[in-house]
Computed example of a mutant assay.
Amino acid sequence: MSDSNTTDFPNPSTFILLGIPGLEADHIWISISFCIMYTIAILGNFTILFIVKRKPSLHGPMYYFLCMLAVTDLVLPTSILPKMLSIFWFNSREIDFSACLTQLYFIHCFFMTESGIFVAMAFDRYMAICHPLRHSTILTNPVVAKIGLAVMLRGGIVVLPYLLLARQWPYCRTNIIPHTHCEHMAVVKLACANTHVSSYYGLFVVFCVTGLDVIFISMSYIQIFRAIFSLPTKDVQLKTFGTCGSHLCAISAFYIPRLFSSLKSRFGQNMPLHFHILSANVYLLVPPMLNPIIYGMRTKEIRGRILQLIAQKGTKIFS
């Protein structure tokens, strides 16, 4: 397909992903760092799933939500890394139009799903700390399953207009996407029509949907902190706060890079293009890598089980 800016192709058969323009000489080194992050994410999240499945004492709401988070953290980086590596290693830059839109949908759908899971986890912590006697009666296994299904459906439905709008635009400027993957705004900017509705809807999702998630999480933790500070001794306060520390770290690692990247893609026109692209990859690769580390190190039951497995392996090796 022609790369000309004047060629008219309202229904392109393929797009061309450039990777990270301006850093082509560093693609191999960048790919190595991305592979390391992806490997840690895969091993860490599979470890979380394995431990929760094998240990019956972890079969509770907190760990079910953690498993949902782990599954989401497996899908998010997997939706972008294989194609990214084919660009960096084999210069295979073409991506089918339908595959591009599918990738776009998966990225944003599972991002919204992960945001909803964090809300559910915050609610679980709120019930466990502020209403411990009602926690097990309200958050039963069927309720947890329904919450998980609702979170997944919400992500799929909220992101569906991204896909439908991107599919209807005429693409007559170019089929070249200066990015490593089919990010929503990177695709929409190629359209030769008035795409304000896509941009406005994207802002609506960021501020109203994701923003509401942040508000709900904040409200939960305001109540949690009130309950913690009303506890009788500092030792009890610190111990209770420690159960929330991992969740707060994971929330910060998830929302801050995403908000920065979203605002920058719309209002940071003076920033270098490679900085835009690197930050967009960071928010898809870093949280899935950090989440199992954060929860594994700060959750006593998971940390204990990991150390137990390591000790068993070591005993077998040296026996």
Rank of each mutant, 00 (worst) to 15 (best):
Q312R: 07
N270K: 10
P257I: 05
V75L: 07
N281Y: 00
N45K: 04
I117H: 13
R93N: 12
I32Q: 02
T137G: 02
H184F: 15
F15Y: 14
Q168R: 15
G211A: 10
W29D: 07
A311H: 12
A193C: 09
G304E: 04
V286C: 03
C67T: 08
P257E: 03
H276T: 02
D3S: 10
C244L: 03
L139R: 10
Y295V: 08
S319W: 05
G156D: 02
I157Q: 01
I251A: 15
M219P: 00
M121L: 14
L18T: 15
A227M: 06
A99P: 02
S86Q: 12
H274P: 00
V187L: 15
V282A: 12
K316R: 15
G22F: 09
S13A: 11
E114P: 01
A99F: 09
P288G: 10
S86D: 11
T39W: 02
K234L: 11
L101R: 13
N291Q: 09
S198T: 09
C100T: 10
H247A: 11
S261F: 04
S265K: 00
F50D: 01
I294P: 02
H184K: 05
T233C: 05
V119S: 14
K300F: 06
M68I: 02
R134P: 00
T299S: 12
L149P: 02
Y295L: 07
Y201D: 08
M37T: 04
T7C: 07
V236G: 00
F65V: 05
G148I: 06
A280S: 13
M185C: 07
G156Y: 09
F275Q: 03
V286M: 06
P232G: 06
A122L: 10
S86W: 05
S246R: 10
F15I: 01
V71K: 00
A120I: 03
G304A: 13
S261W: 01
T137M: 09
R258L: 07
M121T: 14
P12E: 09
A128Q: 14
V75Y: 04
F90M: 14
S199N: 09
P272G: 07
N194R: 07
H135E: 12
A186W: 01
T210Y: 02
I87S: 06
Y283S: 01
M1R: 14
I215C: 15
I222Y: 14
T195N: 13
S198C: 12
D73W: 04
L149E: 06
F65P: 04
M297D: 00
F260N: 03
I147P: 08
F216D: 10
F229A: 03
P287A: 08
L284N: 05
F15V: 01
D213R: 05
A145Q: 11
H181C: 13
V158F: 01
L259N: 03
T47H: 02
M1S: 09
